[in-house]
């Protein structure tokens, strides 16, 4: 049915209702830029729900994104929010966190941004155990630039820069995070709304470097180029083909093209955060000359 005909139909009276998440979304910026069938929307919903359930003072919550489709998340959240450069959301967030350790800082970005161009920052922030929560939306492709191969593209997956199918080994993001020292690692898909919300809540409450990977459909590029149907088909495929295995060895979490995906909570461990280690060591060495750093300088 064409747009004109829809407009001609009489519309029922609909009571104006506030959006259920308008306190946490910048409603003046909606509609957003994401395509129909994209998984970023449900991931943002899970994130917003997690913040609502935690009942935190949102004035102390800050979100940092890099560049790409997921890089636009920061701009839609009614939080102190930063849309930074490609790959550098983590060091930017590190500066914010160390500048004011009382803040809760979230990095919300895509697989290309965090794991390719930003891979170096990802591994070092995990190693240092900087108190950040990283939400990594993994759609296996560079979507903002029109469907190029990503470091997460499974072998045989097509993209505009892998026109004969990818042959590179992709990153297993949970394994990378665990190996580098992350204290909390979970993976869900964009349709596991309740479990994803719970994982984000846990990650937010975990002191140290926490990672939640979200497998999401990219309908317009990944789905179209690989002939996998529309967004909903992909979303359902990921959901129905995911196997929940809490505590699974992260070495077994590699993702193959259109094969079952292992989801769950894989890592939940204790390790001193960067600032805890900093304050402990300097107090040991400097004694009374050192006042634990709290950012009040």
């Amino acid at each position: 049915m064409c747009a004109q005909k829809i407009a001609e139909k009489p519309r029922p009276e609909v009571a104006e209702e506030p959006h259920p998440m308008e306190s946490i979304l910048r409603m003046e910026r909606i509609p957003h830029i994401w395509c129909p069938g994209c998984g970023i929307g449900t991931t943002v919903t899970a994130f917003a729900a997690a913040l609502e359930k935690l009942e935190w003072d949102l004035d102390n919550v800050c979100i940092v994104s890099g560049i790409g489709c997921t890089g636009r998340v920061a701009g839609y959240m009614r939080l102190d929010s930063f849309h930074t450069t490609h790959g550098r959301a983590i060091p930017y967030a590190t500066g914010i966190k160390l500048g004011n350790p009382k803040l809760k800082v979230i990095v919300f970005s895509g697989d290309g941004d965090l794991i390719a161009i930003g891979g170096n920052h990802f591994i070092h922030a995990a190693r240092r155990n900087i108190d950040l929560t990283v939400i990594c939306v993994n759609n296996f492709i560079y979507a903002m630039t029109g469907g190029q191969m990503a470091p997460t593209t499974p072998p045989k997956g097509y993209a505009t820069t892998s026109p004969y199918g990818s042959f590179e080994m992709p990153f297993n993001i949970p394994h990378l995070a665990e190996s580098c020292g992350a204290v909390y690692v979970a993976r869900w898909t964009a349709l596991h709304i309740r479990r994803l919300t719970e994982a984000i809540m846990e990650a937010l409450q975990k002191p140290g470097f926490s990672l939640v990977e979200v497998i999401t459909p990219c309908a317009n590029y990944w789905g179209r180029i690989n002939k996998l149907g529309v967004g909903l088909d992909l979303m359902k495929f990921y959901h129905q083909n995911s196997v929940i295995k809490h505590g699974e060895d992260t070495r077994n979490l590699g993702i193959e093209f259109q094969k079952p995906i292992v989801v769950g909570k894989f890592v939940d461990r204790e390790r001193p955060t960067y600032l805890e280690a900093y304050n402990k060591r300097l107090a040991e060495r400097l004694g009374d000359k050192f006042k634990p750093y709290g950012g009040e300088a």
């Binding site: 930063f82 160390l98 004011n100 920052h121 070092h124 750093y293 300088a297």
Partner: peptide, 25 residues
């Protein structure tokens, strides 16, 4: 009462400085 961090490269260094400046330091 200041904080020093050795970052992983120069891109990260200046990014962290911009972030810290927005935290008010």
């Amino acid at each position: 009462g200041a904080i020093f961090i050795q970052m992983e490269d120069e891109l990260a260094s200046l990014a962290s400085v911009i972030g810290a400046s927005w935290s008010g330091l």
